[in-house]
Amino acid sequence: MTDESFAFLRQLLESPSPSGYEAPARALLRQRVAACADRVEVDMLGNLVAVLEGEGEHRPRLMLTAHCDEIGFLVRHIDDRGFLFFAPLGGVDAHLVPGQRVSVQTTNGPLRGVVGKKPIHLLKAKERERVVPLDEQFIDIGCADGEEARALVAIGDPVVFAAGLERLQGTRITSRALDDKMGAWLVAEAFCRLAAGKRPAADIHALFTVQEEVGLRGAGPGAFGVAPDVAIAVEIGHGTDTPAHSPAQSGDVRLGKGPLLSRGPNINHALFGLLRATAAEAGIPLQVIGEARGTGTDANVIQLSRNGVATALLRVPTRYLHTPSEVLDLNDLEQALDLLVAVAGKVRSRSDFIPD
């Protein structure tokens, strides 16, 4: 990975963009793809679409997609002592929130805060066995009273964890929002690589969706607007190579062993086969996970858009999802990028993906 690409990954991961408030990430992505796209558009919901026209007649429409939102919080109440009460944006684990440092995104810029609850020293025995619900936790921004806090923060201001990207050992990194800004990074980088080479046989649409973490809300309208024949969604995949998992229950998914493909009813068989064959050709290691129903990803709603879309789900193994410290291996990320670019060059006809 070049220094420039890594810097873009860091910038994207550290841009605050919880669901419904994706403007900072969208601006970075738009800047990245605008130089190589034939056109760039933003729909009324906030989905960003970049288009690269292919060559020839009767071109299929291939959509590469990932969501650019992250989990976070929303300020719901400011009490008279200056504490902020909040609701989750997406699936936030109440276990891990107390004590976290957060960044409140106000109209006048970010404010640092910490999440508080009653300290363990003052908890009764039964209270120690209970997970404190998010609506009983609060954010302390250091204000003396409610008047001071309300002058700085407004109801509805979004909040994100304050963690950024850090390197671990070898090629491992940790950051908040790898789910799924690493996917948005992949789609943007693949799009620019395709634009820099020979024009593909397909029209390429890069769709960066919003509000995935609050119910896959952006992908449906986004896919309806693009009207793709074929779509490859890029997402994280649960890395199960830790003491917390049983491979028999969660699948055997390991960091550093290559990208991950989902297989099941949500996935077009011909497109899955093309991804697998292309990886073998290029010497890219692959892992496969079976998913017996619609996946909890944008691929689910994309497959069902209009009269159906040939859909695949390319994942990058990631540990500790929906925490401020998600972990992945950069080798898996780069191999996923190589695979995405190679497969996009092989999509030539929509008829190749119509089931027998």
Rank of each mutant, 00 (worst) to 15 (best):
M1K: 13
E4A: 15
F6L: 15
E14T: 06
P18N: 08
S19W: 09
S19I: 09
E22V: 09
L28R: 06
Q31I: 10
A35D: 05
C36Q: 14
D38L: 03
D38E: 00
L48M: 02
L48H: 07
A50Q: 05
L52D: 02
L52S: 07
E53I: 03
H58L: 14
P60N: 05
L62K: 02
I71P: 11
G72K: 01
F73L: 04
L74C: 08
A87G: 10
A87P: 03
P88E: 07
A94D: 00
L96T: 14
G109T: 00
R112W: 12
V115W: 01
G116R: 04
F138E: 04
D140F: 06
G142L: 03
A144N: 06
A151Y: 05
A154Y: 00
P158A: 01
F161V: 12
A162T: 13
E166M: 14
T171L: 04
T174G: 01
S175M: 03
D179S: 00
D179A: 08
K181D: 08
A190E: 11
R193L: 13
A195W: 08
A202I: 04
I204M: 04
E213F: 06
R217D: 07
P221L: 07
G222Y: 08
V230R: 11
A231N: 12
V234R: 04
V234Q: 03
E235R: 06
H238E: 10
H238R: 14
A244Q: 14
P247G: 01
P247F: 11
A248L: 07
V253N: 09
G256L: 11
K257W: 13
P259V: 07
S262V: 04
G264H: 05
I267V: 15
H269P: 00
L271M: 05
L271P: 06
A279L: 10
P285D: 08
S305H: 13
G308T: 09
A312D: 05
L314P: 00
R315G: 06
R315Q: 14
V316D: 12
P317M: 02
T318V: 02
R319P: 12
R319C: 03
Y320P: 04
L321T: 05
L321N: 09
P324T: 04
D329T: 03
D329A: 10
L337C: 12
D338M: 12
L339T: 03
A344W: 05
R348S: 15
S351K: 13
